[in-house]
């Protein structure tokens, strides 16, 4: 549900996973009296899920901001690594207008995330999980990818 539309803002929607992850994983009925099959490791995996979902959702949000940007207006910053520096960092949260606006300028330099980003990212997510890689490593490899992109851009400019 997107409500705030007057600026470049990604308002939280019901479908945005990261902001409700705590509820999905920690709230809701459990019904312990049921013959609940204890899912091996699911408690531990919650932590990993937070990291994975956080980073993917961050990319998706930035992609959405990107798509709404008016690129005819020049940006003041091009620090892409900062953008992807941490999924839980302040740049990852774009609810407030100020935060979103200040991030917006940086996002202009993070172009290259097209419409297929969502699927591609999810595939990557799935593949990595299948390979039993640590989400941390995956996150790290993603951000180094971003740096590469940013260097490339600098060479051009």
């Amino acid at each position: 549900m997107t409500v705030i539309t007057d600026e470049v803002v990604c308002a939280p929607r019901a479908g945005t996973l990261y902001d409700v992850l705590d509820l999905i994983l920690d709230r809701g009925i459990v019904i312990d009296v049921f013959l609940r099959v204890s899912l091996v490791g699911i408690e531990i995996l919650k932590v990993d899920a937070r990291i994975v979902v956080a980073s993917v959702d961050t990319y998706l949000r930035f992609a959405e901001i990107c798509n709404r940007l008016d690129l005819d207006h020049d940006s003041t910053s091009r620090t892409v690594p900062e953008l992807f520096g941490g999924a839980s960092g302040s740049a990852a949260r774009v609810g407030a207008k100020k935060a979103a606006t200040s991030v917006g300028g940086k996002v202009k330099d993070a172009l290259g995330m097209g419409d297929g980003h969502d699927d591609e990212d999810d595939e990557r997510d799935e593949r990595d999980e299948d390979d039993d890689k640590q989400p941390r490593r995956r996150t790290a490899s993603r951000s180094s990818g971003s740096r590469t992109r940013s260097r490339h851009r600098d060479d051009e400019g």
Partner: peptide
């Protein structure tokens, strides 16, 4: 092999 994968959590929510 149910795990807390992003796709699964998303499906649960949807």
């Amino acid at each position: 092999g149910l795990r807390a994968r992003r796709r699964y959590v998303q499906a649960h929510q949807e």
